[in-house]
Simulated assay, not measured.
Amino acid sequence: MVRLSFLYPIRPERAALNFTGVRAALSFAGVPALLHWIRTAAAGRAALIPVLVLWLLTVGSPGQAEDRLVRLAVPQALVETGFLKHLLPRFSLKTQVRIELVTPGEAAEAAFSDVPKGTPVFQDVAALWHMQVLDGAHPGTARFVDWLGSDVGARTITAYAPDGVQMFTLPQITTEVEEEIVFEGDAMKGQDLSRSKCGRCHAVAEDMRMTDIGSTPSFFVLRALPDWDYRFQAFYALNPHPSFTQVADVTEPFPADRPSPIVPVAMTLDELEAILAYVSSLTPADLGAPLQHQ
């Protein structure tokens, strides 16, 4: 900014003429051209030109200009929709940040892509478009991201409707709902079976926490594991169970030369289903936060 002070009054029409020259000089060439204009004007109109005292308070730096230019890498397919001619000028009008389109692979601060990398910002019938921030420290890029996520940005995206047909919508992100596992067995019967068939090693109920083998996880701990249902459904195939477990119509008899080292655990598939129903009703143990590896 350049501040001008008059040390003595001049006629208004002359002041207007002089300020026009000042503005022109600053617009096209900055302060050096302004000083040249003053010297030239003073030589021709010494009696009419006031003495100007210039204070250079602030001068825009190249860095400030760069902050207001964002290079955006965009594939040709998106350019050809005409959507960016609708979107980008409205952003620039609002923020005074200019967007320059470049080809993917060229130097850029941000990129639009149909590859799932970055943040989904809009979609059409062909693709879900993502914005990837390549220079997170660039102020103009940050403003573009904020604007796209704002209500104004959302309305601008959805307002593009050439020939009355809306071409782009906000991203439709589907959240997978975890399906609840339901076992149809008798949970009460499953509790009794768990006590009689599994209780010799595992704590299967609250009143058995001090009667299990210390190195064997309780049913509450096993229930807290993400794959607990698989572990229970296939327990007879997971060590150490194969050496002493028999499930009717599923497992092979013990080899004659390798009998069970302990009293075998024998059950049917219906009994296993009842145990699964019981375990599914247990409150999982709190295992705390996952381990953080350094």
Rank of each mutant, 00 (worst) to 15 (best):
L101N: 01
F83N: 11
T95Y: 08
S92G: 11
A73W: 06
E106I: 00
T81P: 07
E100V: 09
T103N: 03
V70T: 07
E100M: 06
L101H: 03
E106Y: 05
V74I: 15
R90I: 06
L84P: 00
R90N: 10
T81C: 13
L78Y: 01
V79T: 11
A77Y: 11
L101W: 04
P75K: 12
V97N: 02
A73I: 05
L78P: 01
A77T: 08
Q96D: 07
L88W: 09
L84T: 10
L84G: 05
V70W: 02
A77K: 11
K85Y: 12
V79M: 14
I99M: 05
S92H: 14
F83H: 03
L69I: 10
F91G: 05
F83P: 08
Q76K: 13
V102P: 01
L87H: 06
L93W: 08
P89N: 10
R98T: 04
T103V: 09
V97L: 09
V97I: 15
L84D: 00
Q96V: 09
E106S: 06
L87P: 00
V79L: 15
R90W: 04
T95C: 04
I99V: 14
P104F: 02
V70Q: 08
E106V: 02
K94T: 11
L84Y: 09
T81M: 13
V74P: 06
V79H: 10
E80P: 01
P89W: 07
E106Q: 12
K94G: 04
V102E: 01
I99H: 00
P89D: 13
P89V: 02
E80G: 03
L93D: 09
P104A: 05
P104E: 00
E106H: 02
L101C: 02
P89H: 10
Q76Y: 07
L84E: 11
L101E: 07
P75S: 11
T95S: 14
V102W: 00
L101Y: 00
P75G: 11
R90D: 06
L87M: 12
R98W: 04
F91Y: 12
R90L: 09
G105F: 03
G82Q: 08
V70A: 00
F83T: 12
Q76G: 09
L78E: 08
V70E: 07
L87W: 12
T81I: 15
F83Q: 01
S92P: 01
L88Y: 04
V79A: 14
L87F: 12
P104V: 06
F83V: 08
K94F: 11
R98G: 00
L93S: 10
L101T: 01
V74D: 06
A77I: 13
V74Y: 10
G105R: 11
K85R: 14
V79P: 00
L87I: 14
E100A: 10
A77P: 04
H86F: 13
G82L: 04
T81Y: 14
F91C: 07
E80R: 15
Q76E: 15
